[in-house]
Design a protein around this nucleic acid. Sequence first.
DNA 1: GCAAAAGTGTTGGTTGTACACCCATGG
DNA 2: CCATGGGTGTACAACCAACACTTTTGC
Lengths: 231, 231
Amino acid sequence: MENLIQPGSIIEALSIDCVIFGFKDGKLDILLVKHGEGISEGKWALPGGWITYGESVDDAAKRLLKSLTGISDIYLEQLKAFGDPHRFPVKRVVTVAYYALVNEENYALIPGFTASDVQWFNIHDVPPLIYDHNQILDYGFKRLKHTVRHEPVGFNLLPEKFTLLQLQELYEAILETKMDKSNFRRKLGKMKLLINCKEKQKDVSHRAAALYKFDKRMYVTLRKSGMVFEL
Amino acid sequence: MENLIQPGSIIEALSIDCVIFGFKDGKLDILLVKHGEGISEGKWALPGGWITYGESVDDAAKRLLKSLTGISDIYLEQLKAFGDPHRFPVKRVVTVAYYALVNEENYALIPGFTASDVQWFNIHDVPPLIYDHNQILDYGFKRLKHTVRHEPVGFNLLPEKFTLLQLQELYEAILETKMDKSNFRRKLGKMKLLINCKEKQKDVSHRAAALYKFDKRMYVTLRKSGMVFEL
DNA sequence: GCAAAAGTGTTGGTTGTACACCCATGG
DNA sequence: CCATGGGTGTACAACCAACACTTTTGC
């Protein structure tokens, strides 16, 4: 029986759903699609889909993200599998949830073939979603809050060159706290993970801030010598 | 077609594997089973099995653990799904990995129906395992190292009443470091998470140490008021 | 000059680290 | 009386939080 399965056919019992975070103007957003057909037509949902027999689950997540939203080459990690027997009303489906971090401004959103709409929502202004998607989203947000403090992943939400205030606002939006400017800067300065681009902001109506880049290679080096990112 | 599926029949494309940690005499162990039949007969593997249509994935993990080893009512959390298309040679199977923490001394191991042997192995003395199980084990060990520092889960590996030295040795075994006795004790003292049982060790050939219990209720209370466990 | 954000400095309290020391018990 | 682990104390360095302050720029 197994031999009859084609590499391109889908695994019936498994799906993928993605919690995609974006950041713009000091606000943390998440990306939702509106279903254009099927039993959930007209309702908002996490972007997702099916896994084929020929691809890994990770690859399926990448493919789906690209086809539903046009987004590729981004930070994408598995959250976990959600396996309640009644989570999906039509039949038994276990979903593997992923979360992604993207710089909103880099992408023009294109609704994919089964989506009638794609849109960013502020994290605090999310509509009711289908199935257990609100629960998956909550889990993803918790994971982001945790990860952002222990690994330098937040940079994926910012443009390549950013100001220290943008970075601080990012952390404040994710962790839902206020931070002290001076202490925040000192802490990041000590880590040696930021490269000063020696450029300034343009077109701002106040003193222009210095622009920085995240130094990935330095992070790899420091990690090897036992350094632990903590914020 | 979906309507023909019985609640007790298994989901073909999904399995479960468990990384079960134990602790004894200052050593961190993991539990392996030797397959008694099938294509992997005679080889060591993580305990695992199949999910039925009627149960959640979490429940399936609990059930399998119980039937394969006799162990129940323990700390059990999902790691993540492993979904390489070639990880399982016979057909396409995605496995959902779990990790568990148990007090070795509480359980007499009973090989389950398809296992010819069950045995604890020191974490540094693990044989080659079937499929991608060594990779899953590594991932689980990394997760344990991380979690044990940020949540008070290590207590699940100890007897209900334990000495401070046992606790320190547990952390040293998991994190693979040496710690300073005095500083370790001070840190735990400040957290207020340990109840002094006002009992002493018995039958030891040196000064008897005080026994402590982990105060779960206090932890819940302190968590609510914003406390974060860190070690 | 005022608003808005950039960027620096100071200070006191808390924590972490390394190490030294005394105590109790069984053999 | 000594080996083994139990248990406490100290002192310096590093770090953190709070706050005040000066600088630059566009309008």
